[in-house]
Write a protein that binds this DNA or RNA. Structure first.
Length: 672
DNA sequence: GTCGCTTCCTTTTTT
DNA sequence: AGGAAGCGAC
């Protein structure tokens, strides 16, 4: 048996193999960029199942994004399909999974909805009635940070975030209100499971014995609450393996603590460490350029990364006059390589802020170069989509005040501030069910508001009826389908319902008047809102037309934002990628352009100390995405807020080893 | 309560 | 430059 080494293990290098075969003590894998850590983790999952007889369901593997989780599942299944039975999730989706199964232990509605930052702000705005938007956002941010550190409103260490009693009061009232609504924010997805597991030792024991193996990827970007969650479900008799790279820690602004990885060996005694230092992705000059920048950081473990792929070509630094020329330069690069037989999909255009994508979109559209925009789309944050999601949320949780406020008078139904207040106040006096209260007290409102409420409730009711409570009932669906067709008020063209949940969505969008409203918006300003609503309905057709199916869809919409982008893959897969530096984590491309490498933009203004070091790591992450070619662009002027201003090369450009760089264009005076 | 014009603000990065 | 909030007129 031992003589025969399976082919899936043969392709590993000695360190990778050591990491895969390792068992026993906790293991920390320090994996440099491009060192094959995904291969190690996926192989390890398969190996544990095949060779160590670990039942798949006893394996918990945590990744940073849903995209990574999906990729990992696919790759592990290629080696052994039983890997499909392992639990592969992000921390947040694990938390949501946990809470859905334990709502009776959590202060949550049975089918809670997840609030994002905007929803949090909308909720807090009902408490901070006289505050500016900025103030509200500031407090939202602090509350989110507090939860990242697993601190409730009465936690003694809250001083580290804000010393004021006022903040504690706001945090308390926010929690109070959110609990009454019965929904959860992002921080709750981690903090609540921790609280529940601490209060219910038996349940914690159950998890400890279930998960014999816990694997965590991107460990450098975990936060304190996630560390607490790990401790709550980790049994010292289980096998724990974390993978990360301190040089790629780029989410401190979101509460990530690199000390989780630095202190891992002391947190988990007898930890063994394996370093993966062979880089299989980038050619040597690219690696040299990237490493020479991050070498300027003081706080790092320090490691050596060896390029296994030969010298390659020098990274190119292009000095350009302005953004227009920058977009033009990128388009020319892509065009030339395409004409020489390359693919569009080889290319990625990277930038620091989402706003920068616009110039590239315009230029590439003009030239008919296909591209895909990652992330910045924010499909689920678009106005029309949020409107539709609010309606859907109300079906799932009629106590959702944020959704109710958003949608009750949109489009205008004659329900103004006065009527709204009556409903909200009455609901607060009862059990908080805004829909039930609206129905109950509608007679007490003005005639106009009464009519509006009735229409609104009818739309909800009829859409609700499209959902099967259990089992299939096509009869119900057909009836509802007809009802919808008859109630489009002579609109020749509506949104088309497909399978599953899409009927419910279409029903709501049509009957609530959202369709007509956004259609007229489209006609006025040439937007694509109706098309987006259609796309939403299409996405929903994959889910069963049940209340649970709807709750599941809403959860995925909030936690997995990458989902909205997938539909364009089928049409033409060969596209240039436009993506923020943060979003590139875990990805690779043959040819990469990092744009806007200017002081003030990247690194951003007012970054110093630890924050500057984080920007440097971001540069490192971006540069090491490139396999064959790396380009950096820096403009002499940039337009900001409608103003054109002179800008200067990023400090990072000076830090690059000059033997690993070819400069083109006119370098500004003083740039050496 | 709604519509249209003016002013003021925006840009980090995301699960 | 462009979009959202705010203010005044119907």
């Amino acid at each position: 048996m031992y003589d025969i080494i399976s082919p899936y293990l043969q392709i590993l290098n000695p360190e990778q193999k050591q990491a895969v075969l390792h068992t026993g003590n906790p293991l920390l894998i320090l994996a440099g960029a491009g060192s094959g850590k995904t291969r190690v983790i996926t192989t390890k999952i398969a190996y544990l199942i095949r060779e160590c007889n670990v039942p798949p369901r006893a394996i918990l593997a945590v990744t940073f994004t849903n995209r990574a989780a999906q990729e990992m599942a696919e790759r592990a299944c290629l080696i052994d399909e039983r890997a499909a039975g392992a639990m592969l999730r992000t921390f947040h989706s694990f938390g949501a999974w946990f809470l859905r199964r334990h709502t009776q232990f959590a202060p949550l509605s049975e089918r809670f909805v997840i609030y994002n930052e905007d929803d949090q702000a909308a909720l807090l705005a009902t408490i901070m009635t006289n505050a500016s938007k900025e103030e509200v956002k500031g407090v939202v941010h602090k509350i989110a940070r507090a939860k990242d550190y697993c601190m409730g409103p009465d936690h003694p260490d809250l001083d580290a975030i804000d010393r004021s009693e006022e903040f504690r009061r706001l945090y308390r009232r926010y929690e109070d209100k959110l609990r009454r609504i019965g929904n959860a924010d992002f921080g709750d997805l981690i903090k609540m499971p921790v609280d529940i597991l601490r209060e219910n030792p038996d349940m914690a024991d159950g998890f400890r014995s279930r998960f014999e193996v816990i694997l965590i990827d991107e460990y450098q970007d975990t936060n304190i609450a996630q560390f607490e969650l790990l401790k709550a479900i980790y049994d010292p008799a289980s096998y724990l393996c974390v993978v990360g790279d301190d040089d790629q820690s780029i989410y401190h602004f979101r509460g990530a603590e690199v000390r989780n990885i630095l202190e891992f060996p002391s947190q988990f005694p007898e930890t063994e460490i394996i370093k993966l230092e062979r880089n299989y992705r980038s050619t040597a000059y690219i690696l040299k350029a990237a490493s020479s920048v991050v070498a300027h950081n003081k706080s790092r473990l320090g490691k050596n990364l060896y390029a296994e792929r030969g010298e390659g070509s020098l990274p190119v630094l292009a000095f350009l006059p302005n953004q227009q020329e920058e977009a033009n330069f990128c388009a020319e690069l892509v065009k030339r390589s395409y004409e020489e037989g390359g693919c569009y999909a080889d290319w990625a255009i990277l930038y620091r802020t989402n706003a920068q994508s616009l110039h590239f979109e315009n230029e590439f559209s003009r030239r008919n170069i296909p591209y895909r925009l990652v992330g910045s789309l924010r499909f689920y944050e678009r106005e029309e989509i949020k409107d539709a999601l609010s309606l859907l949320s109300l079906l799932v949780n009629p106590r959702d005040e944020v959704a109710f406020r958003r949608i009750i008078n949109k489009p205008s139904r004659g329900i103004g501030a006065v009527s709204l207040k009556k409903i909200v106040v009455e609901a607060a006096a009862q059990d908080g069910n805004l829909i039930a209260v609206s129905r109950q007290i509608r007679e007490k409102l003005s005639a106009k508001a009464q009519a509006g409420i009735s229409l609104f409730l009818a739309a909800l009711d009829r859409s609700f009826s499209t959902l099967d409570k259990d089992g299939a009932s096509t009869m119900v669906s057909q009836l509802a389908d007809q009802a919808i067709k008859h109630s489009t008020y002579g609109i020749e063209q509506g949104i088309i319902a497909g399978e599953g949940l899409s009927l419910c969505a279409v029903s709501l969008i049509m009957l609530s008047g959202l369709f007509t409203y956004h259609k007229s918006q489209d006609e006025v300003s040439g937007t694509q809102r109706v098309a987006n609503l259609q796309e939403l309905a299409n996405a929903m057709s994959l889910y069963p037309a049940t209340l649970n199916g709807l709750a599941e869809f809403l959860e995925n919409a909030e936690i997995d934002r990458s989902r909205g982008e997938q539909n364009d893959d089928e049409e033409s897969p060969d596209r240039v990628t436009f993506i923020t530096l943060h979003n590139t984590k875990g990805q690779e491309f043959k040819k990469v352009v990092i744009t806007g490498v200017e002081q003030g933009l990247f690194p951003r203004e007012s970054k110093f100390g630890e924050a500057l070091e984080e920007e440097r790591r971001l540069f490192y992450v971006g540069a090491t995405r490139a396999k064959d070619e790396l380009y950096l662009t820096s403009c002499a002027e940039r337009r900001l807020y409608g103003w054109t201003m002179d800008v200067y090369p990023s400090i990072f450009l000076r830090e690059i080893d000059k033997t690993a760089l070819r400069i083109i264009g006119r370098a500004p005076k003083g740039f050496k």
